[in-house]
Write a protein that binds this DNA or RNA. Sequence first.
DNA 1: TTGACGTACAACTATATGGTTGTATGATTC
DNA 2: GAATCATACAACCATATAGTTGTACGTCAA
Lengths: 102, 102
Amino acid sequence: MFQALADRTRRDIVRRVMLEELSVSELADSYEMSFAGVQKHVAVLERAGLVSKRRVGRAQIAHVEMGAIRTVSSLLNELEEVWRARVERIDDLLAADEAEGQ
Amino acid sequence: MFQALADRTRRDIVRRVMLEELSVSELADSYEMSFAGVQKHVAVLERAGLVSKRRVGRAQIAHVEMGAIRTVSSLLNELEEVWRARVERIDDLLAADEAEGQ
DNA sequence: TTGACGTACAACTATATGGTTGTATGATTC
DNA sequence: GAATCATACAACCATATAGTTGTACGTCAA
């Protein structure tokens, strides 16, 4: 998923699709590149589970899988927890040293 | 920063360095690849602002720039806010439709 | 000062990635 | 059914990326 979000165009697609569901061709209109280029980006996001599509007539409407976005987000939040725990541990050690010094 | 976090080895380096500060060669010992390979990964993380180094004798000790990690995290949290706002807006529209139907 | 250690970086290689054009397929409209 | 629209996908190209080896340089220890 990090891999999928590493591309600027794909992050923008996620942002736009989160605001409103869009067909692949509607998305393609927003970018300079070819339709096939955009379609490939959507396919990458789909494989990563960040975006899904549903058929409506001949169009494929893309929508965000918010759960997946949350997963990435919470992975990073977990890192922050680990960090917080470490900082507290160091604080404790420093406090212990100080007490010992008395 | 997404780009920097897109590589599995680099994510692992961030994780390890967050738990305890490590020199480049200490990090290199943890991976199958060459020292130079690991050094390059650390350089990428450094350029992305996710990791910093300080000299201690001949060693370069890497440590995490937690602020940068938080930035990535909060970017994703912002996405979630946008999402929440959109869902609420849709709820409002549905509620309005229902009221109108009465 | 010599040698070993820890690091940085250049040069190179192989593969991944982002883009293109062209073709095929399914749904829609006439 | 024919033409068209929306999409999918294969094949190809250029560049980026992850890895390698080799070399150079600062630091420490003897």
